[in-house]
C-alpha cells in the first residue's frame, strides 16, 4: 500500500487549529466495540496497515498520527511534550464522541496512555476505558537510521545542544529579544524561523530528549497511575527489547496488583515482520471470541 492510498482511507480532524490525520474504520452508529491505538515514536498510523483490515472486522479501530508525524500538521508552536500529545488524544476522542473503548499503546505511546490513565484516575475525563494494552511492536533495529540520534541522546553533552535548540523552539525567542536590534525586522524573523523548521533532524533530537526528560520527571505520576487504576492492564514484553524489560522490572518491583497482567511475547513477534501472529497475540488478550474466530479463519484460509 502506498502512502497516498493510506491517506485516502483517513480523514482530517481539526484540533487546536491544526489538522490531525485520523483513521477511523467505522462511525458512531457501528455496533462494534471501539479500540484506539496510540502509536509510538517515531512511527505513524501507517505501521498498522497490515493488521488494520483484520482488526476492523471485529472492532471500530481509531488510530491517528501524532502532531509532527505522518500526515498530521506540524503546529507552529510545536508540542514537544507527552502531556500535550495526551491532551490531543483526549480532544480527538471527545470530537469523535467516543464513550467507551480499549486502548492499545505502543512504545512511547504507552507513556501517553499512562498519562491518560492518570487523568482517568483523577476523574478529569469521563471516558469508560475498558482495557489498556501496552506493547512495543517494533524491533529495535527497525529505526537503525535513527541510531546516530540515539547515540547523541545518550551523550551527556547533549543537554547543552538541546538547550540551544529549545531556545529556537518558537519565534517568541526573537520577539522577546527587544533590546536586540538585529531582530527588529519581522520578515527576517520569519525567514530564520522557517529555515530552522527545515532542519528536520534538529527537531527529532529535541522531541526525543523531551520525552526522555518527561519520563523521569513524571515517573512517579505514571507509576502510581498504573497502581491506582481498576482498569485491566496488560503489558507485553519480549526478551530482545531491553528498554521494555527495564520498565517491566520496575513494575514488578512495585506492589503487585491483580488488574495488571504481564505477558511474555515468547516468539518475539513484531508488527512489521509477523503481523498476523502479532495481532493474534493481541486479540487473545483483548477478546477471546474474536481471537478464536480469527484463528479458525486464518487456519482454514
Amino acid at each position: 500500500m502506498t502512502a497516498q492510498e493510506w491517506k485516502s482511507y483517513g480523514k482530517f480532524v481539526r484540533i487546536n487549529n491544526n489538522d490531525l490525520f485520523v483513521i477511523d474504520t467505522a462511525d458512531e452508529t457501528s455496533s462494534k466495540e471501539t479500540i484506539v491505538i496510540i502509536n509510538g515514536y517515531p512511527s505513524t498510523s501507517y505501521d498498522y496497515h497490515k493488521i488494520l483490515p483484520t482488526l476492523s472486522e471485529y472492532y471500530r479501530v481509531i488510530v491517528h498520527d501524532h502532531f509532527g508525524f505522518g500526515f498530521s500538521d506540524l503546529p507552529d508552536t510545536y508540542c514537544f511534550s507527552l502531556m500535550d500529545q495526551a491532551n490531543v488524544c483526549i480532544e480527538l476522542w471527545r470530537k469523535l464522541n467516543l464513550k467507551s473503548f480499549s486502548i492499545l499503546a505502543d512504545g512511547y505511546g504507552s507513556k501517553i496512555a499512562k498519562e491518560i490513565l492518570y487523568k482517568k484516575n483523577a476523574n478529569l475525563i469521563s471516558f469508560n476505558i475498558k482495557k489498556l494494552l501496552i506493547c512495543n511492536s517494533v524491533k529495535n533495529d527497525f529505526y537503525s537510521d535513527l541510531n546516530t540520534i540515539t547515540a547523541l541522546i545518550r551523550n551527556k553533552k547533549l543537554a547543552k545542544y538541546k538547550n540551544i535548540l529549545m531556545n529556537y523552539k518558537n519565534n517568541l525567542f526573537y520577539e522577546l529579544s527587544v533590546e536586540n536590534k538585529k531582530y527588529e525586522d519581522k520578515a527576517k524573523i520569519d525567514r530564520i524561523w522557517q529555515k530552522f523548521n527545515e532542519l528536520e533532524h534538529q527537531k527529532e533530537a529535541l522531541v526525543l530528549c523531551c520525552y526522555n526528560e518527561e519520563t523521569y520527571l513524571y515517573w512517579h505520576r505514571w507509576m502510581s497511575a498504573l497502581k491506582e487504576t481498576n482498569i485491566p492492564v496488560k503489558i507485553f514484553w519480549r526478551k530482545d527489547d531491553f528498554a521494555n524489560i527495564k520498565d517491566l522490572l520496575l513494575n514488578l518491583a512495585s506492589d503487585h496488583h491483580n488488574n495488571i497482567e504481564i505477558i511474555e511475547n515468547k516468539h518475539c513477534f513484531v508488527l512489521d515482520r509477523e503481523p498476523i501472529n502479532w495481532l493474534l497475540m493481541i486479540l487473545r488478550e483483548l477478546d477471546q471470541t474474536a481471537y478464536h474466530s480469527y484463528k479458525y479463519e486464518f487456519a482454514t484460509a
Binding site: T77, C79, F80, S81, M83, D84, N163, M166, K169, N170, L172, C210, E213, E214, L217
Partner: peptide
C-alpha cells in the same frame, strides 16, 4: 528547572 524549561511553551501559551 527541567520541568519549567520543558513546559514553558505550554504555559506561555
Amino acid at each position: 528547572g527541567v520541568e519549567i524549561l520543558q513546559s514553558s511553551n505550554r504555559w506561555l501559551d
